[in-house]
Design a protein around this nucleic acid. Structure first.
Length: 748
DNA sequence: CAGAACTGGGTTTTT
DNA sequence: CCCAGTTCTG
């Protein structure tokens, strides 16, 4: 960057780093623009450079740009990179996820929809509990036949489409519970307002409704936002689209500067309400729109790009885009397609290749195993454990989803917003205070009779003799506690208040007294929460962070094999990518096909495309002839996607060598590539190998014996059930493991 | 009010 | 087969 005061005579170097198509995407500033950015074509770079360019050229002041992403990660990256280009912190920007930006807007205008500015953002747990209450109160609904989960899905779909209860005509009612979905939705929304709460969908729904009905407020935002940037446009749902369009339809036609970046070939979230039509329709929605295609791929080798291109070409209704190899060293090995006997072999093959490559010096973090469904990760985990290769499963239970964290959060929420009934219900009897069903019923009745929050009703009841002495005393103690903790919050801040509250409420004590092996970890998590609390100026800021950001990056950069779903892999890249389980029924997923037909098949194909294009140098696709599903061995046929890969970009391999060695004189399952292509289920008859033998141990293990496990370390056997061992590990607590993964401690 | 036995359901999940 | 959520029992 040039020194202050001097005018750069040549182009700034942030532009010089771009190729011509990228520059076009950055420098086309006026009017609607769609940037079709294929995988690995420098999308993020274009987006952030464009942002910086708007500021550097004086087209917009920082607060006049609205930049929207789907993930917090993307938002953070953009913020950091903009700051780097500008050479100063990128503060005060309207840059964030749809949800975060909407939350910010809604806090400004909350009263219009009947909320207060300090409304609570509910997590999915709370939503479900609330909805169950509503359904129970409504009565006459068989919860077996009509689970709350189903209604939640209906409501979410409506919210995804920007439909408030008032906008749903009786004819549009879902057939859920005999056309009662609409009225239940209405009751649910009413209750949310009473609770001064909003669920995720509400953040967009409420704001969109405000923008639709309040021309004055919309005009304010029009004056404010001169440029709009949208990332991952192919993943927007209808309400997000409406929100964007409202904000982009400036009365001044020369101020309709919306730039959407996306890739129709990577649209994989239709089941969450994303509408690929939004991106396909862009030119119609925004007249005069220009389209720029980014087609130079700097990530992958030629064969990988060819395989991906051949596959995705089978989809109809694409905007059309061809990835060109952009790197100078784009030559590379063909994509491997490996056929294996069963899922155990498949895991072994993957493990062996990783081990070999690691010995040649490749870091483990450059290997990813991308699966269709989470359940598939297990066999790979087991294999990696036996090999002693460290791995990371992306997308497990998140920090803020753990019970103790949710409990602590509930305490904090009440501290901040006493009317939060859901939080109150969660902790009123945690730790146990002797308030069971009957006590809660009394509380609810009192609250309903006077139309006041539970916490307030509790305060009053605790001073009367309605309840039995024990629960009454406990409740009084708790309610007086909250009064006290609020004072601490005022005087000494939220960090001290939280600490005091967790101690005095007996919550921390509850886990200290808990003898289960998880308890110490939970206490540790509570301490971690307190630490995180200190990173925020206010309690409100912290609560918003948890509700909207919900992430922890524990050892993300560690030296480990990465295991995750194809969905979770979007936006990432690795040197070597394993794509196991390419079998009919699994991938493409049968369930998906049953529900969505041809459209769903195309989405599965896009998922495959996303998977392949994650690889920089090596992609290894595999399928197994036999797989354990819910405990039984089932035979599978190769995925149709395998037949769709262009032959000259792939190399097929038969069974793994390990099996061939062991079964040297048994006939091959697949008759070369011919057998593969014939796609016949030929494995239904009984076969002699089905009795899979267990590797025998020299001496049997006994109860009470000390053992060693590759991942969990040393421990003591507490119970034995066939090949299952219950072991209490010294460091990781009790676990159930397979006997073949442990050895006697004396043998190590 | 809390553990034990039972039942059913089991893709993907950026916020 | 493995879990979570529900119902049953002391």
């Amino acid at each position: 960057m040039s020194s202050p005061g001097s005018q750069p005579t040549t182009q700034p170097d942030y532009l010089a780093r771009l190729n011509p198509e990228q520059r076009l995407a950055v420098e086309t500033l006026d009017g609607p623009l769609l940037v079709l950015a294929g995988a690995g074509t420098g999308k993020t770079s274009v987006l952030t450079t464009r942002f910086a360019h708007l500021l550097m050229t004086g087209r917009a002041r920082p607060w006049q740009v609205l930049a929207v992403t789907f993930t917090n990660k993307a938002a953070r990256e953009m913020r950091e990179r903009v700051a780097t280009i500008l050479g100063q912190p990128a503060d005060g920007l309207w840059l964030g996820t749809f949800h975060a930006l909407c939350a910010r807007m809604l806090r400004r205008h909350a009263e219009i929809v009947g909320l207060k500015s300090n409304f609570t953002i509910l997590d999915t747990d709370d939503q479900m509990r609330l909805l169950k209450q509503i359904m129970e109160a409504a009565g006459g609904i068989d919860s077996k036949r009509w689970p709350a989960q189903g209604l939640m899905a209906v409501i979410q779909r409506w919210k995804d489409r920007g439909l408030t209860p008032a906008r749903i005509t009786p004819a549009e009612d879902s057939d859920y519970a005999n056309n009662r979905a609409r009225s239940l939705y209405e009751a649910y929304q009413r209750r949310l307002i009473e609770l001064n709460a909003a669920d995720f969908g509400d953040l967009l729904l409420h704001v969109t409704e405000i923008l639709r009905t309040r021309a004055d407020i919309l005009a304010e935002y029009h004056r404010s936002f001169r440029y709009i940037l949208v990332d991952e446009y192919q993943d927007t749902n209808l309400v997000q689209y409406l929100w964007l369009r409202l904000l982009a339809q400036n009365e001044d036609p020369n101020q309709r500067n919306i730039c959407c970046v996306g890739d129709d070939d990577q649209s994989i979230y239709s089941w969450r309400g994303a509408e690929i039509e939004n991106i396909l329709r862009f030119e119609k929605d925004f007249p005069g729109a220009r389209i720029v295609r980014l087609e130079s791929n700097y990530r992958s080798t030629k064969p990988i790009l060819a395989a991906a291109a051949g596959l995705i070409a089978r989809n109809a209704g694409r905007l059309g885009k061809t990835l060109r190899p952009g790197r100078k060293d784009a030559e590379g090995e063909n994509v491997r397609v490996v056929s294996l006997w069963d899922s155990v072999e498949e895991a072994r093959m993957v493990g062996e290749r990783i081990e070999q490559a690691q010995r040649k010096g490749h870091p483990l973090s450059e290997f990813a195993i991308l699966v269709r469904a989470n359940a598939q990760t297990r066999s790979f985990e087991e294999r990696l454990i036996t090999l002693g290769l460290p791995y990371r499963v992306v997308g497990g239970l998140k920090f803020y989803e753990r019970a103790e964290i949710r409990d602590a959060m509930a305490y904090l929420r009440i501290l901040h917003q006493p009317a939060d009934d859901l939080a109150f219900e969660r902790i009123v009897n945690t730790p146990k205070r002797g308030l069971g069903d009957s006590g809660m019923r009394t509380l609810h009745q009192a609250a309903r009779a006077e139309n006041i929050p539970l916490a307030l009703a509790a305060e009053r009841i605790a001073e009367t003799d309605t309840l039995k002495p024990k629960p009454r005393a406990a409740l009084r103690e708790l309610m007086r506690g909250f009064v006290r903790w609020r004072q601490v919050n005022e005087k000494e801040g939220h960090v001290v208040a939280a600490e005091t509250m967790l101690d005095e409420s007996g919550y921390r004590e509850m886990w200290k007294l808990d003898r289960s092996p998880e308890a110490p970890g939970r206490l540790e998590n509570l301490r971690e929460l307190e630490r995180a609390l200190g990173d925020y100026q206010t309690l409100a800021g912290f609560l918003d962070h948890v509700a909207l950001v919900m992430e922890t990056d524990e050892n993300a950069e560690a030296e480990r094999v990465q295991l995750m779903t194809l969905h979770a892999a979007k936006g990432l890249e690795f040197d070597t990518v394993f794509l196991p389980g390419w079998e009919e029924g699994l991938f493409p997923s049968q369930r998906s096909l049953d529900e969505g037909g041809d459209k769903a098949l195309e989405e599965e194909r896009r998922l495959a495309y996303v998977g392949i294009t994650r690889a920089r140098r090596t992609a290894i696709i595999s399928h197994a002839a036999n797989r354990q599903i819910y405990g039984n061995w089932t035979s599978s046929i190769p995925s149709r996607f395998l037949d769709e890969l262009p032959e000259d970009a792939i190399t097929r391999e038969g069974q793994s060598t390990s099996r061939a060695n062991r079964m040297a004189d048994t006939p091959s399952v697949f008759l070369g590539s011919q057998g593969l292509l014939a796609r016949r289920p030929r494995l239904t008859e009984v076969n002699p190998w089905d009795q899979r033998e267990r590797p025998a141990r020299d001496t049997a293990l006994t109860k009470g014996e000390r053992v060693f496990h590759q991942k969990f370390g040393y421990g003591t056997i507490t119970d034995i059930d066939e090949d299952r061992l219950d072991i209490t590990f010294d460091h990781s607590g009790p676990k159930r493991v397979l006997d073949r993964f442990v050895s006697k401690a004396s043998e190590v």
